[in-house]
Write a protein that binds this DNA or RNA. Sequence first.
RNA 1: GGCGCUUUCGUCUAGCGGCUAGGACACAUGCCUCUCACGCAUGGAACACGGGUUCGAUUCCCGUAGGCGCUACCA
Length: 506
Amino acid sequence: MAERKVRVRFAPSPTGPLHIGGVRTALFNYLFAKKHGGDLLLRIEDTDSQRFVPGAEDYIIESFKWLGITFDEGVGIGGDHAPYRQSERREIYKKYVKQLLDSGHAYMAFDTPEELEEKRKSIPNFQYDAHTRMSGVNSLTLSKEEVEKRVANGEKYVVRIKVEPNEDIEVNDLIRGKVVINSNVLDDKVLYKAADELPTYHLANIVDDHLMEITHVIRGEEWLPSAPLHVLLYRYFGWADTMPAFAHLPLLLKPEGNGKLSKRDGDRLGFPVFPLQWTDPKTGDVSSGYRESGYFPEAVVNFLALLGWNPGVEKEVFTMDELIQLFSLERCSKAGARFDYEKGKWFNKEYLAMKSDDEIAALFAPIVEEKGYKRDMDTLKYMVSLVRNRVHFVKELWYETNYMFEAPTEYDEKSLKKRWKEDSPAQMRELYAVLEGLQDYSAVLENEKTVLEWVASKEYKLGDVMNAFRITIVGAARGPQIFDILNIIGKEETLRRLSKALEILK
RNA sequence: GGCGCUUUCGUCUAGCGGCUAGGACACAUGCCUCUCACGCAUGGAACACGGGUUCGAUUCCCGUAGGCGCUACCA
């Protein structure tokens, strides 16, 4: 086989939002393409007119834009192999269906769905294949005239592949090695439906991959059982010499329980399974997305890259460029990977840690505004610097800083029980006077020194004083160094909170 | 049911005949400390089972069991 430029594709079906497993597949295709200086194409497989969902295609394109996965060719980009939407390639498929029919590798079948259903019910393990096709209503059992008559009458038929029996079909999978399946277990799959003049996945897929000069098919493991059928199709078309190499990726499994991760798992389990938020056009149901949940796209990419693939080094945080350098199908694992949302959160934290205070403050500003507050950037940056290392997401910053904006409305029971002691009210009253005497609240270190000296002079226990004080300011035993908080809320607010606490707590 | 894929800590995984079976997440403990975190240190935690092959199997082969997938005029 001549050296060909690497060309891979991601070919989703627009039946809804892109699910995270699909994103992972697309990512691996992207990494593989870029690693080998090849092209990645985006093809829309909308051959199922029944399940088409408006908006899904735009959603897919926007998702990849957010994730930083770029395509070289395809829907929304264009290219030499257009069109890239299968519904626009009807005429192309018809030509190839005819080729298969003419060469005797396929035949027309007139069996109605009801008839087939009946057979499946009455005959155990029924499948449309070499052993049963002669009892079906098709161009193999009907006379040529009868077939022509039926077609002329506009009777709906399907075209089925004619799988020859008793043949071992080999699929060389780049991840799993050689997989052999006997053609006896394959059925005569429907390749084309006259009703909507569209091919099914199997036919469209092979024709398009061939025409678009795809060199490697990297897809989910759920396709492995039909891979032999695809090999057969390449053979029947006479394209065996340029048949792409296959790689079937392990599936993403539910975090708990059984089965592969599905579209419905996300909101049930409390984490997104979609890159972007999605509103179902029919039901209006909203499904959460990683973007809206506060994830950085780099974190999602990094997390997904390590599900079913290992770089071979003990580092775990990688840029996209590093992933591209390191990627190889040989290092993909074979078994399904359970989706561990906690690890995903950790990745986001890692990426958050790499951002500057400025960047984080800029992302935090709209959240503050939404809560009805306004602060200048310097103040926000100051707040961010104090609490940034205790969150996974920017949005969690609000919980960590809310007491810097508003006085506590209640005091945490547990903290009170442990930290508010008998002497506390008296000490707080004295502290009030000490703080009142402070001139410049921005002199954090100096003020701390003053208070510490006062505590020492009175021979109070530092922990007793500071913890009680913290409760009056924050409302609980949490938060960063207290003098930084004071600096932010200011003297008047400090004294106000102190006296209010003294009133309520006694 | 049939066919296929798969099986190392709770989870993601390293390992490619000889290792005290390594790392990360999560968890626990300790240190730090005005609290909560961060950080640092420490700890518990795995080769599904049974046969082979071999001087020697987590590693190779065969079974069994479990898991997953496919089995549509869906992809």
